Computed example of a mutant assay.
Amino acid sequence: MKIQPVQTSNAPNAIGPYSQAVTVNGMVYTSGQIGLDPESGEMVEGVEAQTHQVMKNVQTVLEASGSSLYQAVKLTIFLQDMNDFATVNEIYASYLREPFPARSAIEVAKLPKNALVEVEAVAIQG
């Protein structure tokens, strides 16, 4: 079993000692993605814009690993405020298709760089 790191300049760089994702045995495990614009390195404003950016970042990392959101089996959403769930859920759904992956949504006290939403994924490669 060999763990392979995934790195793409089309998504925000890791801001610590971790990989954007790793692959092992045909599976992809992404690190959490927040609403950072990969070109500017700046956080986009507002929960709607952050959710779109997060989903684009997750998709980009999955594509760099040879996968996609359509091959995701489990996504975890972290929210700074559960009152944003309906908005995030609507945007999130626009990036997916049936059969939808399993999902958890969790309210947390704080996210890196004061993000409003973060998403991590587990997906099948290939």
Rank of each mutant, 00 (worst) to 15 (best):
M1V: 13
I3P: 09
I3L: 12
Q4S: 13
Q4V: 15
P5Y: 09
P5A: 11
V6Y: 05
V6A: 05
T8P: 15
N10G: 00
N10Q: 14
P12M: 14
N13R: 15
N13G: 03
A14K: 08
I15Q: 14
G16T: 05
P17G: 03
P17H: 07
Y18W: 15
Y18N: 09
S19T: 08
S19K: 10
Q20F: 11
Q20C: 10
A21K: 06
T23A: 03
V24H: 10
N25K: 07
N25I: 00
N25D: 14
G26F: 12
M27C: 02
V28Y: 09
V28T: 11
S31R: 06
S31Q: 11
G32C: 11
I34N: 01
I34R: 04
D37K: 03
P38E: 08
P38C: 05
P38K: 07
G41Y: 04
V44P: 11
V44I: 07
V44G: 08
E45M: 05
E45R: 12
E45H: 10
G46C: 08
V47I: 15
A49Q: 14
Q50L: 09
T51A: 09
V54G: 00
M55T: 04
K56P: 00
K56D: 03
N57F: 05
N57M: 06
Q59M: 03
Q59F: 03
T60Q: 11
T60L: 03
V61H: 02
L62D: 01
S65E: 01
S65G: 02
S65M: 02
G66S: 00
G66F: 00
S68C: 01
Y70H: 04
Y70V: 02
Q71M: 07
Q71K: 14
V73E: 12
K74S: 09
K74D: 15
T76L: 13
T76Y: 06
F78T: 00
L79G: 04
L79P: 12
D81W: 07
D81L: 01
M82Q: 13
M82K: 15
N83T: 14
N83I: 06
F85A: 11
F85M: 07
A86F: 10
T87D: 06
V88Q: 07
N89G: 01
I91D: 02
A93D: 06
Y95D: 03
L96Q: 05
L96A: 08
R97C: 04
E98F: 05
E98R: 07
P99N: 13
A102I: 04
R103L: 09
S104I: 05
I106Y: 07
V108T: 13
V108M: 12
V108K: 08
A109T: 09
A109K: 15
K110L: 13
P112M: 01
K113H: 12
A115I: 11
L116R: 02
V117K: 00
E118T: 01
E118G: 02
E118I: 02
V119H: 01
V119A: 00
V119F: 03
A123F: 02
Q125E: 10
Q125W: 08
